[in-house]
Computed example of a mutant assay.
Amino acid sequence: MPKGYIIGHITVTDPDAYPEYVRRDTPILQNLGAKFIVRGGRSEVPEGETFERHVVIEFPSFEAAKAAYYDPEYQEVAEIRRASADSVIILVEGHE
């Protein structure tokens, strides 16, 4: 079965508030099967424009990724991200 991914492209607008999101979202998502593949770190954009920070979170399936994103506990914490960053969040199915 193909894995599922949550991909986030983020530009932090409130660096004092954003760390609280990271601190709180990590255990929630890990309890829902998340494996953080990319979380911040150095990046280059050889073509086009994008946000400053990139996150790739792997789940056992697309359905698991979708369920994690829409989980009420995660959505409550996601409000911190929405208030402290501009972001695009994408749910993607991988391939076998």
Rank of each mutant, 00 (worst) to 15 (best):
K3D: 09
I7V: 15
G8D: 04
H9R: 09
H9A: 14
I10R: 04
T11W: 00
V12Q: 02
V12Y: 02
T13C: 07
T13Y: 06
T13E: 09
P15Q: 10
D16V: 14
D16T: 12
A17D: 08
A17G: 03
P19L: 05
E20N: 08
Y21T: 01
R24S: 09
D25C: 14
D25T: 06
P27C: 03
P27T: 01
I28Y: 10
Q30D: 08
L32R: 13
G33M: 09
A34Y: 03
K35P: 04
K35N: 13
I37Q: 12
V38A: 11
R39W: 03
G40H: 07
G40V: 06
G41I: 11
R42P: 14
R42Q: 15
S43K: 06
S43Q: 10
E44Y: 05
E49N: 06
F51D: 06
H54V: 13
V56E: 09
I57Q: 02
E58M: 09
F59Y: 14
F59L: 13
P60C: 05
S61Y: 04
F62G: 12
E63T: 10
A64K: 15
A65Y: 06
Y69K: 09
Y70L: 14
D71V: 02
D71L: 03
P72L: 10
E73S: 12
Y74L: 08
Y74T: 05
Q75R: 12
V77D: 04
V77E: 04
E79H: 06
I80D: 06
R81K: 15
A83H: 07
A83S: 15
A85N: 04
V88R: 11
L91S: 12
E93Q: 15
E93N: 07
E93M: 10
G94Y: 00
G94L: 02
H95P: 00
E96M: 11
E96R: 13
